[in-house]
Design a protein around this nucleic acid. Structure first.
Length: 360
DNA sequence: AAATCGGGGGT
DNA sequence: ACCCCAGATTT
């Protein structure tokens, strides 16, 4: 755990300078930026959660015409709410909005809660959205930590580590809280989102326009493109299977694989789900190939790493007695080791045979 | 094709 | 308390 020596080295007057910047460059004419009632702010924050400003504007205006206040929303049928939401996507947001409206109107006497803790109890509102509503609608000093703010803060402090992780997120909330002013906190909330949305963007940030260029640790360290640290790719799953090494005399049964998928179109050993028991394997061999197994035993498993998963193949050797009337299919082929060497086979299968020959 | 996003839900 | 997902867009 690399505890940073000082998790917080305050940039002096951050809020003041940010507000000075946003007074000139910030957006102040969006539909939800006038008449900032809790209801109007809330609806805008929910709509903006996973959707860009430009896409939200039209929906917001129509939504407000249909449901001008929280009472009209609470008394509406869910279908009417969803109808107004149609096209915005993420419809769970609309259901949560409706559910929360009913809760406020019928359980809280229509009084929208003002502190973060209470706001967070409403469906569809987490800590960041609650902070936004509390600060913008109630002018309470409450931090937010949405994607924009995470980006600004991880760059300003050049914080390494995925912001979704526990420790980093905790550190970011601490920073967000420290920077949040008591004066003009509603403008500050809007301003830091504007900074992230217009200058401190994910790609091609406009650092030359940024009022914090000389404060920015990532800029100084030339790590802007590395911040925020991207989510660690979850390590690939391991998939296991049986690989059937079916032999009769000196020949092995190969099966041409489907054209698409892994090893598409190549000849390979038949593959079965690892779930099968020996008995089930033999049943399947008889069903699919019309071959009776005489003996069955396992060889050493081999591993093959694909880009998206690791295959752990368990070869199972099956001796069969060749029948006259064995199923004949285009995709099935009996090959000797010599013939096999000429054939296009998946590398792991070829390798398996090299080992089998050199170390029987 | 892969990364992103804030909250919900499952473990 | 922690991890992961659904659902849609963006790069």
């Amino acid at each position: 755990m690399s505890q940073q020596p000082s998790p917080f080295s305050p940039t002096k007057d951050f809020a003041k300078r940010l507000l000075a910047w946003s007074d000139i460059n910030g957006r102040k004419d969006l539909p939800w930026q006038s008449d900032k009632t809790p209801y109007r702010v809330w609806v805008s924050e929910i709509m903006l959660q996973q959707t860009q400003v430009a896409a939200v504007i039209g929906y917001y205006q129509r939504f407000m015409e249909h449901f001008p206040d929280i009472h009209s929303l609470a008394h509406a049928e869910e279908q009417q709410v969803l109808a107004q939401w149609a096209g915005l996507g993420y419809y769970a947001r609309a259901r949560n909005l409706h559910k929360a409206a009913k809760h406020v109107v019928f359980d809280l006497d229509g009084a929208f809660p003002s502190d973060v803790e209470k706001i967070m109890e409403l469906s569809g509102i987490g800590r960041s959205t609650a902070g936004a509503i509390s600060s913008i609608a109630f002018k309470r000093s409450a931090p937010i930590l949405d994607g924009n703010v995470k980006r600004v803060l991880t760059r300003l402090h050049d914080i390494e580590g995925w912001p979704g992780g526990r420790e980093i997120e905790k550190q970011l909330w601490q920073l967000a809280d420290n920077y949040t002013p008591t004066e003009r906190c509603e403008d500050y909330t809007q301003a830091i989102m504007d900074l992230g949305a217009t200058l401190c963007t994910r790609s091609k940030p406009q650092c030359t326009q940024c009022p914090f260029q000389t404060d920015c640790q990532a800029y100084a360290n030339d790590t802007i493109t590395l911040r925020p640290t991207s989510k660690p790719k979850k390590k690939n799953p391991v998939k296991e299977c049986w690989i059937l090494d079916i032999t009769c005399n000196n020949e092995t049964l190969f099966e041409k694989r489907p054209a698409s998928g892994i090893w598409g179109g190549l000849h390979s050993l038949p593959e079965l789900s690892r779930e099968y028991t020996y008995d089930e394997i033999l049943e399947e061999v008889e069903r699919r190939f019309d071959l009776k197994g005489l003996s069955i035993d396992e060889a050493r498993p081999f591993k093959h790493i694909f880009s998206h998963y690791t295959l752990l193949a368990h070869p199972v050797r099956i001796q069969v007695s060749r029948q006259e009337n064995s199923i004949r299919e285009e995709r099935l082929e009996w090959l000797t080791h010599e013939a096999r060497a000429q054939k296009g086979l998946p590398a792991p299968i070829s390798k398996y045979f090299e080992e089998k020959i050199t170390k029987p």
